[in-house]
Nucleic acid binder design. Structure first.
Lengths: 205, 205
DNA sequence: CCTTGACTAGACTAAACAGTCAACTATTCA
DNA sequence: TGAATAGTTGACTGTTTAGTCTAGTCAAGG
C-alpha cells in the first residue's frame, strides 16, 4: 500500500546516461536528480549515495539491456564464428549510432567506470567485475564451441576470452578517446585473427 | 634573475601519481598541493587549472619516461618480433611491479584519463590523443619491419597497430579493474597471434 | 650589497556539493 | 471512507572546493 513510483528507475537511467556521457566522478547527485526530474529528498529515499545508485544502475543495465542482447547474439543456434562476427559488427554499429545520436563516441560504460573507480569505490568496482565476468562467459563458451567445430586452433578458452575482451574494450576505448567510431571498423577482421580463425577471409586482415 | 624553484615539477609528479592511483576527477587541487608540498598560491602561479597541470604532466611523462623507454624497447637494432615480445613482457612486469609497490594494479594512466575526460576536458583530451598517436607510431613501424622480414603475414600496418594497441590497453584495463596483474600474463602469446606471427611458438597460445 | 623579479604564504571569498529533516501528498487496502 | 503506508518536497546545514589577493621571502645580476 501507499503510493507507487518509478522515480528510482528514472534515477538509474539518468545516472547511467550521465556517467556514460561524462564520467562517474564528473556527475553529481544534483545532476542526476535534474536529469531524472526527481528531488534530492527522493534520491535519498531510494539510495544512500551515488555509489549505491551506480551499483543498482549497472545491475539494471545488465538485466534489461546487455543480457537480452548477448543472449540473442551469442545464441547456441548460431554458428560459433558467426556469433563473434555478429558481435563485432554490433559493437561497431552501436558506437557509430551513439556518435550520430550524441555527437560523441561514448565507448563502453562498464570499462570506463571500472577503470575510473577501481581503486576507489569498492562496491561499484565489485559490480563492474561481476558484470564483466558474466560477459566473459559468452566469449568463453563460444570459443569452446568454435574449437569443437574445428573453426579455430585449439587454445585455452579462458585466456583467449580475456584477450578477445581486451581487444574489444581496448579498441572501443580508443574510439572514445579519439571520438572516432571508424577505429572499430576493422575489429571484426582483427578479432578473427586473434581467435586464430582458419577461414580464408582472415588473411585479408 | 629572482629565485628558482622546482615546485612546478613537484606539482607535475604529484598530479600524475595521484591521478594514476585514483582518477582525474577524484583528485583535487588541494590533494595535489599537499602531495607536492606546495601551497595553493604557488600552484596558481604556475598553472591556471587542474586541466592545465594535467596537460603539462602528461607532456612531461611522455618526454621523461615513455619516450626513452619506448626508444629502447623498439630500437631498430632489435629483431622486429623480439621488440614486441620485449614490450609485452615489459608491460606485464611493470604492472606486476606496481601491484607490489602500491598494493594495486594501476593500469595505463593515458588510457584511464583519456577515457575519463574525453567528453569533458578538451585540452587534456587533445594531449592524450597526441601521446597516443606517438605511441602508435612505434607499433606501426615495427609491424612494417616484421612484414619486410617475412615474420608476419602482410597487413595494413596502421590498422594492425590500432588493434595491437587495443589489445594491450584492453588487457591492461582489465588488469586494473580486476586488480590482478596475471590477466596480462598471456599478453605476449595473444599479441603474437594477433600480429599473425608465423612462429611455431604461437600455436601454443 | 642592493635592487629586481621570481616565487611563497596563507587567509579569504564564493560557489558547489552532499546529506538532513519535518511537513506534506497521494495511493492502496481493509 | 479512512487509516496506514509509500513517496515527495524544498528549504536547511555544514563541508569541501576552486580560485583570489596581498604581503611577504629569497636568490641572482649589476
Amino acid at each position: 500500500m501507499g503510493r507507487t513510483s518509478d522515480a528510482n528507475i528514472r534515477l538509474m537511467n539518468a545516472a547511467l546516461e550521465l556517467i556514460w556521457e561524462e564520467s562517474y566522478g564528473a556527475v553529481t547527485i544534483d545532476d542526476i536528480c535534474n536529469r531524472a526530474e526527481v528531488k534530492k529528498g527522493s534520491f535519498y529515499y531510494f539510495y544512500k549515495s551515488k555509489a549505491d545508485l551506480a551499483v543498482a544502475a549497472l545491475d539494471r543495465m545488465w538485466n534489461e539491456e546487455w543480457k537480452p542482447t548477448l543472449d540473442g547474439i551469442f545464441s547456441s543456434s548460431v554458428d560459433p564464428l558467426a556469433r563473434f562476427s555478429a558481435y563485432f559488427d554490433w559493437v561497431y554499429r552501436a558506437q557509430a549510432g551513439l556518435k550520430k545520436k550524441h555527437g560523441k563516441v561514448l565507448g563502453c560504460p562498464l570499462c570506463s567506470v571500472g577503470s575510473e573507480v577501481s581503486t576507489q569505490e569498492q562496491n561499484v568496482s565489485a559490480k563492474v567485475r561481476e558484470v564483466f565476468s558474466r560477459k566473459l562467459k559468452y566469449y568463453e563458451s563460444t570459443i569452446r564451441d568454435a574449437i569443437a567445430a574445428g573453426q579455430i586452433a585449439p587454445c585455452d578458452a579462458a585466456k583467449k576470452a580475456t584477450a578477445i575482451a581486451g581487444l574489444i574494450e581496448g579498441v572501443v576505448a580508443q574510439a572514445r578517446i579519439m571520438d572516432d567510431p571508424e577505429v572499430i571498423q576493422s575489429l571484426g577482421a582483427q578479432g578473427l585473427t586473434l581467435l586464430g580463425a582458419k577461414s580464408a577471409a582472415v588473411a585479408s586482415a
